[in-house]
Design a protein around this nucleic acid. Structure first.
Lengths: 341, 341
DNA sequence: TTCATAGGGACAAAAATAAACCCGGAGGCA
DNA sequence: TGCCTCCGGGTTTATTTTTGTCCCTATGAA
């Protein structure tokens, strides 16, 4: 593409210039996600001193991108219009388009979207990732769809950043699995409810904890209300999930040492959708809970995976050996890490 | 075009960045036209201090665009490869592509090419203009063509900057008019000879001064050698000319006060090809000399006009009311001036 | 050999930038 | 209503970068 050549020339001629575009984009994006916000709060949330931020702010104000009021700084109208294009520009500057293509090739997955920055270091990048994933979800929605969503902080963020959009009718949102006994706001149930609310959709909840005995589980499955949800899960058109490392997930789920040993023995490495996979992408164990079953995954039309964090790169890689027909939303750092594997 | 949008964003986000691209391009272009050249000579030929030039030089050297040796600075290999693209980039940054389109519309001429900068202020721009015109001439050449060229500093520059190119066979170059009694190197004869030499072409010269009596003129026309050249001029496929203001040309040709009065009376305004035009583009007078006749102009397949200088804008405008089927090569400042008219 | 011109080093002046701090005011909360 | 916090913006000082100036040695042509 011609654009790439142009940026190449600029990189040679004014290497510092492209960097400051990225820098200003960071400021812009941070303002957008937190507006209205003051200088001090912003400078501490980003890792730059107040004064240098002030310099950037002045430039951006002169450029008419932001407006400063007594309440704080906000994106101006032109700023709102331009930021999408700036985002695209930064995407090109950082070569993320090429990175996307490389990852797609390496993992063999359906599609990928990379947001700029480091998910682990910046709150703004977290929200940006959530927003991107939410946008992609909305893009793939049609009337009457059933959606299932898993739990976790990343997906909670997706739910938070999702825009209100009531234009789809007869939607249904269900959690993909029972609660994990952790913070309410990152449980699948809460996330499903929140997304349903934003979409103006119906929803059903699944009040079943993880890690319960097999016998109890069986009896729960015959419970009318629960069965209803499980039946709904069998019919879903879209699954929104994330990927974790096996160890992290085992800790989070509070597995017994016995089960953890089993995981270690079976070389469990990654976790997704309630299942544990080894490094070769083979499912080796699953949670004692109800919800989506792995065998049904190919039947689901849309699978969107929002996941980031440098340490999760290998897990994403492993999961992708098992299943590839999904859309991955991740961040720059994680993507680069995947490429190194 | 997508590129334009991208540059628009950059203009908003880092206005200083694009300026420094243009600045560095100026340095690069100046080095190219004068290499090898030293810092001091370069800084005085450009209008910047030695120290600040040194800063630019260092950046360009770091970028690998130029090489500095004890003999002076030269473009590196990558620099030579890149400068064309940088030129194109600057063309887009300055909106010259749009300017070209606007001028083309306004004058209704066949085509136009604008080089960046101010012809009146910079020697480099002069040479750049010459090079561009020379390139365009070469681009339009085919085997066996007859070319006619007029006189003047601009066209002398075109001849100077023309690359040696012997790949065309059976070429013929003739001056479009006799000498003007001025400096040898800017006479049509000299320019024709030089171009012929660069092209490896045959050439014929026309040793007839301007401003001679009608009777002498007639007898000269019957001279065998002169008649041969005049016949050749009738057959040319390409004319390379320039445009001047009437006053300037009258002075240069050393017209008598009587003739000058006649010019003033007839409101002569522009001069081209040995003819004077009023502001409405009507030919009102012609030089007492032999050479190309205005009526033959439409028969000539290619007409290329190299002309620049802010004060000539109105003359270009006037001539274009008479004839439009030509390719104009000019500079940025002149182009902008034309647009103001 | 001489001389002009090359690049590069050194250094102070000047300018831009960064840091730290303060101030009055708007707005929320008690 | 009054306090308290956080807002943008002003100011002053320290630091870094840029710029102007001068000088040095090397190199190549005359």
């Amino acid at each position: 593409m011609e654009i790439q050549r142009l940026l190449q020339i600029q990189k040679v001629l004014i290497p510092e210039g492209l960097e400051s575009i990225v820098k200003r984009y960071h400021v812009l994006r941070a303002i957008m996600t937190a507006q209205p916000i003051g200088r001090r709060a912003l400078s501490s949330s980003m890792a730059i001193s107040e004064r240098v931020l002030r310099g950037e702010i002045e430039k951006l104000r002169e450029a008419g991108m932001i407006e400063v009021e007594s309440a704080g700084m906000c994106l101006s109208v032109v700023g709102q219009e331009l930021i999408k294009e700036v985002e695209w520009l930064v995407h090109r500057i950082k070569g993320l388009t090429e990175l996307e293509e490389a990852i797609k090739q390496k993992l063999g997955i359906q599609d990928i979207c990379i947001v700029e920055g480091d998910y682990d270091l910046s709150e703004t990048v977290k929200r940006d990732l959530g927003r991107k994933a939410a946008d992609l979800i909305l893009k793939n929605l049609t009337h009457g769809m059933s959606i299932s969503v898993m739990g976790g902080t990343t997906l909670a963020c997706v739910a938070n950043e999702m825009k209100n959009n009531k234009k789809f009718k007869n939607m249904m949102v269900v959690p993909g699995r029972g609660g994990l006994g952790e913070r309410l706001e990152i449980q699948a149930n809460s996330i499903a409810a929140k997304i349903a609310h934003k979409l103006g959709a119906n929803y059903k909840l699944l009040h079943v904890p993880d890690n319960i005995g097999c016998d109890v589980l069986e009896s729960l499955k015959s419970n009318k209300q629960i069965k209803e949800v499980l039946d709904e899960i069998k019919r879903i058109d879209m699954i929104i999930f994330s990927i974790g490392t096996a160890k992290e997930m085992a800790d989070r789920r509070g597995l017994s040492e016995l089960r953890k040993d089993e995981l270690r023995m079976k070389k469990a490495f990654a976790e997704a959708l309630g299942y544990y996979f080894n490094q070769e992408g083979e499912p080796v164990m699953h949670t004692d809970s109800v919800g989506i079953v792995l065998q049904d995954l190919p039947k689901i039309k849309h699978a969107i995976c929002a996941v980031a964090g440098k340490h999760k790169a290998a897990a994403i890689h492993a999961f992708s050996k098992y299943y590839t027909n999904y859309l991955l939303v991740t961040d720059e750092v994680t993507a680069k890490e995947i490429l190194k594997l």
